[in-house]
Amino acid sequence: MRLRVLPLLFGAVLLAAGEDPFEPPPEVQAFARQQTNGRPSISSKVSTLLRAFFSPAEEGGLGIVYDNAYTRTPKEVWRDRKANCLGLTALFVGACKSIGLEVRYGEPLRISRWRRVGTTVRFERHVVAVVQSGTLGQELVADFLPEVRRDSLLIAPLEPKRVKALYFSNRAVELLAEEKQEEALHAARHSIEVDPALGVGWNILGVVQRAQGHDADAEASFRKALWEDPKDGAPCGNLENLLRAQGRTEEAIAYRERGLEIRKRDPFFNAFLAEEALGEQQWDEAGRRIKQAIRLLPYEPEFYWIQARVALAQGRTKDAIKSLEKARKWAQPEAQARYDSKLSLLRNIKPE
Rank of each mutant, 00 (worst) to 15 (best):
A172R: 03
P230G: 11
A30S: 09
T73F: 01
R288D: 14
V173K: 00
L101R: 03
V200F: 05
P196H: 04
V200K: 00
L205V: 03
W305K: 07
F10H: 13
E19Y: 14
P7E: 07
Q138T: 10
G206R: 01
Y70C: 07
E23I: 04
T119S: 08
I99A: 06
A335C: 15
L242W: 01
V207T: 08
S133F: 09
Q282G: 05
G60D: 02
K224E: 15
K326Q: 08
E58D: 10
I64M: 01
A234Y: 02
G213T: 02
L109M: 15
H126D: 03
R79Q: 13
A16S: 04
E182V: 13
R72F: 10
P7Y: 06
R256F: 10
L185V: 07
P235S: 12
Q181G: 13
D266Q: 04
R39T: 13
P196T: 12
C96T: 06
S55D: 15
E219W: 07
L242M: 05
P301Q: 10
K264N: 09
E240L: 11
V130I: 07
F22M: 04
D20M: 01
S47G: 05
R309V: 14
I306D: 00
K291I: 13
W227H: 11
N241L: 13
P24C: 03
S169L: 06
V310C: 04
F31I: 10
R72S: 03
E178Y: 07
L6A: 09
R33M: 09
E302W: 12
P298M: 14
L140Y: 02
Q281C: 12
S221V: 00
L154S: 14
Y255G: 09
E124F: 01
I155R: 00
G106H: 01
L345P: 05
L14G: 10
G279W: 09
V194Y: 07
R81Q: 12
T36P: 00
A225D: 09
G94H: 01
L8R: 01
V121D: 02
A274L: 00
R116Q: 10
D151E: 08
Q212E: 14
V163P: 09
P157M: 04
I321W: 14
G118Q: 13
A337V: 05
T135A: 11
